Amino acid sequence: MQHTDIPSRDSILSLATARDPLSVSIYLPTSPLPQESEASRIALRNQVDEAQRQLLAVGADKREVAAITEQIGDFIADRAFWTHLSNSLAIFVTPTSLKTYRLPNRLEAAVEVADRFYVKPLMRAATFPQTAYVLALAQNSVRLLEISADDVPHRITVDGMPENVADGAGLDPIAGRSPVGHQTGGRAGGGNTPAGRVQGAEGQKVRMAEYSRAIVRALRPLFNGLNVPLIIAGAEPLVSIFRSVATYPHLASQTITGNPEEIPDADLAASARLILDEIYAAQLAALRDNFADRHANGRASTDLSDVARAATFGAIETLFVDIDRSIPGRIDSESGAVTVAEEDNAVNYGVVDEILRRALLSGSQIFAVRAEDVPGGGAFAATLRFAA
């Protein structure tokens, strides 16, 4: 089982804006298997040695360096933590603080020392969090699952959720009748649905629509303000009927087909993650197409100087960054002018990371992706809010 701590955008922004002359960022590939934790702890010790070497090379105070290494040493000694890992571990440490995140993405090992934290790889988990809800929808039952990067999905109790079609339609689940009237003609006493409409296949569709609307009403308080995909698991015609009355804007077009009463939660979660991969792939393809259109109109760039200036003046609309590439150097805080360095050391920081930080501050949409998904194939690319 994986254990994850995916940071929010606000958490990433807090890390990106923090400043300390001795800021150490470490990314470590790990394994969720407890028996493999010792190898990860050894690898981290080696990374700490490298961070210490870089700090001492620029004349950092030995007491402050010792404070960093002691904090990480205590963290390494916490054996209970090391039995609850995911696929990567991110560590951010100064002489007075240490923060960690367990991430579902497989990230490359990295050690960065500067006056700020190296957050670009951390954005990968925030870009594609592998989080969704699955609504397992059947005529005789409905359940809501929360899917995350963890292996185990969680069932969510929803207040007011109908138990089945009869419950959602306000019918007696035993007799299939309205509890407020038993007439067979005209209108059922006190009811709003003509009794003649709830007969046969057509009547069953009416009940399924009422059931679907009851589910939508129950889900609305939970989903208000969310932007997490909702994936339906179920069979026709109920799935189509539910889609016809659903109002949630992030309802996935893909469906997990079949009777969800016969599909275990873990299998629903596995199918949902495949659908999430499809959603993200389609989203990236659309963004790359948009980049090409913007580039033709002077509203996109892959030039380092142009993108750095655009980030400085809040002109980036969408930023793509390769999570595995780093360009050492510095960016002027006023003009956005870039100075690229030959060596990655404790004096320089990643200029793409600094572009990302400035884009975060201006509310840009950011996608931390693999190299093949960056338009132009470079370390970064950006669409702009106005023509350069």
Rank of each mutant, 00 (worst) to 15 (best):
D5M: 13
P7V: 07
D10H: 11
R19S: 08
S23F: 02
S25Y: 07
Y27S: 04
L33Y: 10
L44W: 01
N46T: 14
Q47V: 11
Q47D: 13
V48F: 13
V48A: 08
V58C: 10
D61N: 15
E70R: 14
Q71E: 09
I76M: 06
S86L: 04
F92E: 01
S97K: 04
R102K: 14
L103Y: 07
P104S: 10
N105G: 02
E112G: 05
V119M: 11
L122T: 13
N140G: 12
N140E: 12
D172Q: 05
P179I: 13
V180K: 11
G181M: 10
Q204K: 15
R213N: 09
N227W: 02
V228M: 14
A235V: 13
T247L: 13
H250G: 07
I256K: 12
P260H: 08
E262A: 14
I275H: 06
D277V: 15
R294I: 03
G298E: 07
A300G: 00
A310R: 14
A310V: 13
T312G: 14
I323Y: 12
I331W: 05
V338W: 03
V338T: 05
N348E: 14
E354I: 08
L360R: 02
L361C: 04
Q365F: 02
I366M: 05
R370M: 01
D373H: 04
A379W: 00
T383A: 04
A388I: 11
